[in-house]
């Protein structure tokens, strides 16, 4: 479904993505992890062109998406994106957040869009908040609305950029549960996350990144029990025992 071919990206002199080659199949749930600054957010943001690339190609459903003249808005409406900071529209109600794209981009009739949005809100357990303002919701609820909003255009692919990193610990679970539900329904998902429990239980594959390169790709069981690359071993040791690291 997604093919990276020799993808490179620079921020000035900084080589953010280095020769990325990767294929993500339809229905796959892929977790991207790695230390901060490793390029994982940059990587996921290139898939819907929130970030440009400097060389190589990225194909989505066979179409080179970084080519000039791509119908960017159509492409993006087919890729759901969930941000770390939720980015709900504060001047719109929860329901309006979820109907904006279907009405504006998809050309849906309001009644039809409402019905669909209510079904999605019900799916993330927030149908009763449809008329609330985003500011009235907890972080976990906001993120679940953001997921419903991203699903409103019925995209075949969902991208999550650290979806639980801005949440209080007690709200992480509710968001991960919604994501797990999506995975169970066969959605293709790419997640940048530090939630190793989610990676272990839900992901089909884990990509480990450091310094702009994918250093390791493995099934979760393999990755957690037999990490191959020394950087991956170090990373896993660090996140398991954050206080035990020698100074």
């Amino acid at each position: 479904m997604i093919q990276f071919d020799k993808v490179n990206k620079w921020y000035g002199d900084y080589h953010a993505l280095v020769d990325i080659d990767e294929t993500i199949a339809k229905g796959e749930v892929v977790v991207v992890c790695g230390p901060s600054g490793s390029g994982k957010s940059t990587l996921i943001r290139t898939i819907n062109r929130l970030e440009a690339i400097d060389s190589g190609t990225i194909a989505f459903e066979g179409e080179d998406i970084h080519r000039r003249g791509v119908d960017l808005n159509r492409l993006r409406s087919r890729i759901g994106f969930v941000f770390q900071q939720f980015n709900l529209f504060p001047h719109l109600t929860v329901l309006q957040n979820c109907t904006l794209a279907p009405i504006e981009v998809g050309g849906a009739r309001p009644a039809q869009a409402h019905e669909k949005a209510m079904a999605l809100l019900d799916r993330v357990g927030l149908a009763h908040k449809a008329n609330a303002w985003p500011a009235e919701l907890s972080g976990g609820q906001q993120q679940r609305v953001a997921i419903a909003r991203a699903l409103a255009m019925a995209p075949p692919l969902m991208l999550f950029d650290e979806p639980t990193s801005a949440l209080d610990p007690e709200m992480v679970g509710e968001v991960l549960l919604v994501m797990q539900g999506l995975a169970r329904d066969g959605m293709t998902i790419v997640v940048v996350t530090h939630e190793m429990g989610f990676a272990r239980d839900v992901a089909h594959r884990v990509l480990f990144m450091d310094q702009g390169r994918i250093l390791e790709r493995a099934e979760p069981h393999e990755f957690f029990n037999h990490p191959q690359h020394p950087r991956a071993r170090q990373f896993l040791a660090d996140i398991r025992t954050p206080f035990a690291r020698p100074a």
Partner: peptide
């Protein structure tokens, strides 16, 4: 906030 514009564009809005 920049995230508002990004979120709108990510949904496919021009």
């Amino acid at each position: 906030p920049k995230g508002q514009y990004e979120a709108a564009r990510a949904l496919g809005l021009s």
